[in-house]
Design a binder for these strands. Structure first.
Lengths: 207, 207
DNA sequence: TCAGACATGTAAGTCGTTACATGATTCA
DNA sequence: TGAATCATGTAACGACTTACATGTCTGA
């Protein structure tokens, strides 16, 4: 069975976090998981439906007067068992398809100038994302000082004060993203320097 | 048009490198591009067919006596124009879906022990790949010393002596992969230490 | 002679995004 | 009043993997 069902378990995991509507699920992913995850509505709603069909989640329409209608999904006991099973299974390293790297490789038969241009473009994109992440980090650090969690993530990490494990792990996932970005930006700088200098052999001797 | 056609251009780019059979294309990707790319036969052959249909590549069956039959594909002038266009278009940062990170995030409502277990598993996988990459790096460094390219990559980087741009860029793509791995392994070590110590706030103050 | 590399392809299924489609509620 | 947010979905497309299917040639 080649079945991966990543979206399946992502949703199940978030419903175990707390019951949510499809819309909330999307927001949760955007705000809390954006450093390593994404989901589109086109995946979300159909999968929610199938989860209900399989008995892993329940669909509960909420029609309160003065509130717009919404459909809250919750995980079932069966869903929790499936989720627990998923946790014991090894996760594969994500397979990478880095379009920039592909282009960069191919520039070696085109021109150094083009390689350098691509590296600069890549670096700019990484730096832009790095800015975003650094801003998030500053917000989190301020939250620790203030002993109150920031407005922007309050909605999803609602019950996660700055000294909770939820907060800590959230911070660590951000750090994972930042570490990766830092390393890649440093690599860009090195690669640009090497290509500019025309130094072909020297870098090979150091690690 | 949401058309990405990454495989399209990957193949086109490699055919610009040199004319190849589908099988050779697969090998090329496995040996030279594995640090950042992958292709499956299920993508390769149908895409090659469509490339020919669109006039971007030619299919030339080779039936030499005493050689098994094979079909060599080559890029056309039109294909080269399309490829050149692709080079000028900005590449998007690959969107990430890191299953491990997802699980790790969710452990914050499960247990620290489970978080640590996941981190160790992730680290082991990264380290395994790191070994592979480090081995490749040593082979390349030896190639520089020997002034001869290593047997394993000779087939694909055939005309790329150790002082060529092809060799240098190939080496740099390997370094990109290694930098990323190193950063992530270091992150694992930090995260494990933090979760073990039960230190929840200290790491937030340093960058 | 037989394993392993060379070689080419298809079918089924999963996965995922984007664009489309629709409409209510809230708040400035 | 009108923009933003809340809210739910579908259709079309495209991408990608795995498993299946088949066969040849080379060299130990």
């Amino acid at each position: 069975m080649p079945t991966k069902k990543k979206t399946w378990f992502a949703i199940l995991g978030l419903l175990a976090w707390q019951p949510m509507t499809g819309y909330q699920l999307k927001k949760f992913v955007e705000i809390a998981l954006s450093y390593f995850w994404s989901e589109s509505y086109g995946q979300l709603y159909p999968t929610l439906g199938r989860l209900v069909d399989e008995g892993l989640a329940t669909r509960r329409p909420q029609a309160q007067p003065g509130r717009r209608a919404r459909t809250v999904f919750a995980i079932t006991a069966l869903g929790r068992r499936e989720l627990a099973k998923w946790f014991t299974e090894p996760s594969e390293l994500p397979r990478i398809r880095n379009e920039f790297q592909l282009k960069f490789f191919l520039t070696s038969r085109r021109s150094r100038a083009e390689g350098i241009r691509l590296l600069e473009e890549y670096r700019a994109q990484l730096a832009e994302r790095q800015d975003l992440y650094l801003h998030s980090e500053r917000v989190l650090q301020q939250a620790v000082v203030d002993r109150a969690f920031p407005e922007e993530i309050a909605s999803v990490l609602d019950e996660a004060p700055p000294d909770s494990d939820e907060f800590l792990v959230f911070y660590l996932t951000l750090r994972h993203g930042l570490s990766t970005l830092n390393a890649r930006i440093a690599w860009c700088d090195e690669a640009i320097a090497i290509l500019r200098d025309g130094r072909p052999l020297a870098p090979l001797t150091k690690t």
